[in-house]
Nucleic acid binder design. Structure first.
Lengths: 119, 119
DNA sequence: TGGTATAGTATTAAAAAAGGTACTGTAAAG
DNA sequence: CTTTACAGTACCTTTTTTAATACTATACCA
C-alpha cells in the first residue's frame, strides 16, 4: 500500500483506510462484531493469510482495531473495532453509498450504449 | 494505482478517488476553478508530468473531471470538475476532516509519550 | 537566431504492494 | 496414529505504481 509523506490531510486519512482489503475488513468490523482471524478469512475468501495479517497489523497500529490474544492452544485471537475506529463509520458509509451510485451510473451508461448500437 | 475487480462498493468508490495525487487534484478542482495543465503542476510541485497526466486521464475517464482542448499553439488544455464530480465533495470533505483530527490525535499522543519519557 | 512556454509521450528504472507456497506448534477429534 | 483447526511467519516471485529522463512541435519574444 502506498505510504506518503504527510503532505495533505486527505492522504493521511486515506492511508488509514486504503489498501486492497482494508475497506472490506472495516466494513465487517464496523458491524460491531468481534471476529477471529479465521472468521475474517472466511468472510474475505480471496485474501491470503499474509495479506490479512499485514492489513490487520496496520489497522491495529493506528488503533482503528483492537487485537486480543487468548493464550491457549489452538490459538485464539479476536479482532474488533475500537471506539476511535468507529469514527471512520461516516466516511465508509458515504463512500459505500457513492460506490453504489457509481456502479449504477456505469451500468445505466452501458445499457444506453448497447441500446444505441443495436438500434 | 490498484484496480480491483468489482467485489465491493468501497473498492469501486476508492478506485475513483485514490491514487497518490487524486485527492489533491480533486481538492483544487472542487474549489470550482478551471485550471490548465501547468497551473495544476505548479499547485502540486512534487508531481511529475507523467503522473499528473495519468491521474487526470483516469479522472476524465470516470467523468469526474472535464478536459477541454483548445486547438492552438502553444497548446492549451483546461481541466474542471464536472457536475458528477461534485458529488464527491461530501466524501472528500469528511475525509479531510477525519485526516485533520487523525493528525491532531497522533501529535497529542506523541507529546504525551515524550512527557512520560522525560519525567 | 536562440530561448521559452505549452501539453504532453516514450522509455527505462526503481520502489511498493500484493500474491504464492511452505512451514511452525499443539490440542482435540476421529 | 493421522488429521484438522488455529494464527500466524518466512521466503520468494509477480504485478502494479511511481519516478526520472529525454524528447516532440510550434508560436511568440527578444
Amino acid at each position: 500500500m502506498q505510504k506518503n509523506p504527510v503532505q495533505c490531510q486527505f492522504v493521511v486519512a486515506l492511508d488509514s483506510i486504503v489498501g486492497k482489503w482494508k475497506p472490506i475488513i472495516l466494513y465487517h468490523l464496523l458491524q460491531g462484531k468481534t471476529l477471529r482471524f479465521n472468521e475474517l478469512r472466511r468472510l474475505l475468501p480471496d485474501i491470503t493469510q499474509r495479506m490479512l495479517t499485514l492489513h490487520l497489523r496496520e489497522l491495529e497500529e493506528e488503533e482503528i482495531i483492537k487485537r486480543v490474544i487468548y493464550p491457549q492452544i489452538p490459538p485464539k485471537v479476536e479482532y474488533s473495532i475500537t471506539e476511535y475506529g468507529m469514527s471512520l463509520s461516516p466516511i465508509l458509509e458515504t463512500l459505500h453509498q457513492w460506490g453504489v451510485a457509481h456502479v449504477e451510473r456505469k451500468q445505466l451508461k452501458k445499457a444506453n450504449n448497447e441500446q444505441i448500437e443495436t438500434d
